[in-house]
């Protein structure tokens, strides 16, 4: 099993922490993992992305430009990474942040109303965990339990009281891929 994933959006949407949580969970389950963030001018320009690779085998390159899955949270990232999804791969996007939906017909596309659902949970910041939940429903590369374990490591202790709402968000996200239409 090897999953090559890109998560991309604006700074502040929780792109890097979503990837880090997933990577941490992968490590908890004794997989090989790599988390490669964008840094520097890309981030300072307002967009952020990270590549996560999870594998039960040795990971050769942390640098990749084709992906099994892309999780896209804004339009500039859609424009940049839609073409990088491997044929047969998955593209999940946050519905509210995309003006021009993806057009590829050789991949599975899921529009996830993660912003809306996060607001229903009274915590807009859980949007990233809803997206992560949706991804895990499609590609169960790690268990929810490992993600929750990882959150304890990734979140500073003063934020640990937020783990329950993050769990709610993850579980809500897992329900959402079934309801959306696959293009």
């Amino acid at each position: 099993m090897t999953e090559e994933l890109i998560i991309a959006g604006f700074g502040g949407q929780g792109v890097l922490s979503m990837g880090m949580t997933l990577a941490y969970a992968g490590m908890i389950e004794d997989n090989q993992i790599v988390w490669m963030p964008s840094y520097g001018p890309e981030m300072r320009g307002g967009t952020a992305n990270c590549v996560v690779v999870i594998s039960d085998d040795k990971i050769s390159s942390p640098i990749i430009n084709t992906f099994d899955t892309a999780i896209i949270l804004n339009q500039p990232s859609m424009d940049k990474f839609e073409s990088g999804v491997k044929p047969g791969g998955n593209l999940l996007y946050e519905a509210n942040n995309i003006i021009n939906p993806p057009t590829r017909e050789d991949i599975s596309i899921y529009d996830i109303p993660a912003n809306l659902e996060a607001l229903k949970l009274n915590n807009a910041k859980t949007m990233n965990m809803i997206m992560l939940g949706a991804f895990l429903a499609l590609r169960p590369v790690v268990t929810i339990e490992s993600i929750l374990e990882a959150l304890k490591k990734v979140l500073p202790e003063r934020h640990h009281h937020l783990i329950p709402v993050n769990e709610q968000a993850l579980r809500r996200g897992m329900e959402l891929t079934g309801q959306t239409t696959t293009v």
Partner: peptide, 10 residues
């Protein structure tokens, strides 16, 4: 290099 410095692995 910068990538090895910035990236995370176990």
């Amino acid at each position: 290099d910068g990538a090895l410095g910035q990236m995370m692995e176990a």
